[in-house]
């Protein structure tokens, strides 16, 4: 039976409200960001911006330019920060989940203790860590000095600051990722382990050849969100060090935020945003192509 006009239009009508919101709050800003990244704002606010094509991008990678001199270093920091977070927090999250998945006495308390960092708002958590790291009155240095050691200038020493920020991120992120692993573990049917035990598979064998492969999709997801979150780190920098000292503790999105204050930087701000989005997009696509495809092949 041929569809009536209404029947043909109806699905689009259903999608329309969502589409309007996506267009308004996602598509339009994205387009504006890309086009604005090709302009330089004029000296007077009322004058039209000047079209410069890719000059803003070229400046960002020019080490004599006032923003370019900082951009490449900060981009490097962001990669190091993200890599360290993933390398440490994902395995930690997995171990925590294994620990909590066992039916032991006190598991409830342990679960709360390990999940606690994920529940804390990041700004609050960072404020607590700001106290840990404080040079004069901080917890860490008070303990170190108690043992007769010299304190470490956690947030002031250019060679230490990035580690200090990564540590906080690992603490927070491993707790958050643990929840996904725990959910994943509890979804694996008990009977396949029982079957494996009957076949004489040991604990490590079960872990290596059953648990890890079965949680592959969880791992993919967890790595994806950890990379995305780490790339977009802002809050803790605002509380802890504002990117100091000397940009050794600065990250990309925070740098973008720092540069917004000056109207005439808006071309650069948009260009940096495009770089950030492209990097994340490239990462997500690679992941998708590498892992999702393989699943399809098998199926």
């Amino acid at each position: 039976m041929p569809k009536t006009a209404f029947q043909r239009v109806f699905p689009y009508l259903l999608v329309l409200p969502t589409f309007v919101f996506v267009a308004l709050f996602t598509l339009y800003p994205v387009t504006r960001t890309v086009t604005d990244s090709l302009y330089k704002p004029a000296r007077r606010a009322a004058d039209p911006s000047v079209f410069v094509f890719l000059e803003n991008y070229a400046d960002l990678f020019d080490s004599t330019h006032y923003l370019g001199a900082r951009f490449v270093q900060i981009l490097g920091n962001t990669f190091a920060f993200t890599l360290a977070t993933v390398v440490f927090s994902v395995p930690l999250a997995f171990l925590f989940a294994l620990l909590l998945n066992r039916q032991l006495r006190g598991t409830g308390f342990l679960r709360f203790a390990i999940f606690y960092p994920a529940l804390l708002p990041l700004i609050g958590a960072a404020s607590i860590w700001a106290f840990f790291y404080s040079d004069t009155i901080g917890l860490f240095n008070t303990i170190l000095r108690g043992f007769g050691l010299t304190g470490v200038n956690w947030l002031g020493d250019p060679n230490v600051v990035l580690y200090a920020i990564v540590l906080l991120n690992i603490w927070k992120q491993s707790s958050y990722c643990m929840i996904f692993y725990l959910a994943g573990l509890q979804n694996i049917p008990r009977d396949i382990y029982e079957a494996a035990q009957l076949d004489g598979a040991g604990w490590f064998y079960q872990l290596r050849y059953m648990t890890v492969p079965l949680l592959r999709r969880t791992t993919l997801f967890v790595v994806l969100i950890t990379v995305t979150y780490s790339f977009q780190t802002v809050e803790q920098l605002q509380v802890l060090n504002q990117g100091n000292p000397a940009d050794r503790g600065n990250l990309l999105l925070y740098f973008i935020f720092q540069s917004i204050g000056e109207r005439r930087n808006w071309g650069y701000v948009n260009a940096m945003t495009v770089v950030l989005v492209l990097l994340l997009l490239a990462f997500t696509l690679t992941n998708f192509l590498l892992f999702e495809r393989r699943d399809d092949d098998k199926a």
Binding site: Y66, R70, G156, D157, P158, N159, N244, P245, A246, D247, R248, Q258, S259, E262, R264, N265
Partner: peptide, 17 residues
């Protein structure tokens, strides 16, 4: 921007970077 440039330069020297 000028303040950011100055703060950054000061910070890199004073911090020992």
């Amino acid at each position: 921007d000028v303040q950011l440039i100055i703060n950054n330069a000061l910070s890199s020297i004073i911090s020992g970077n």
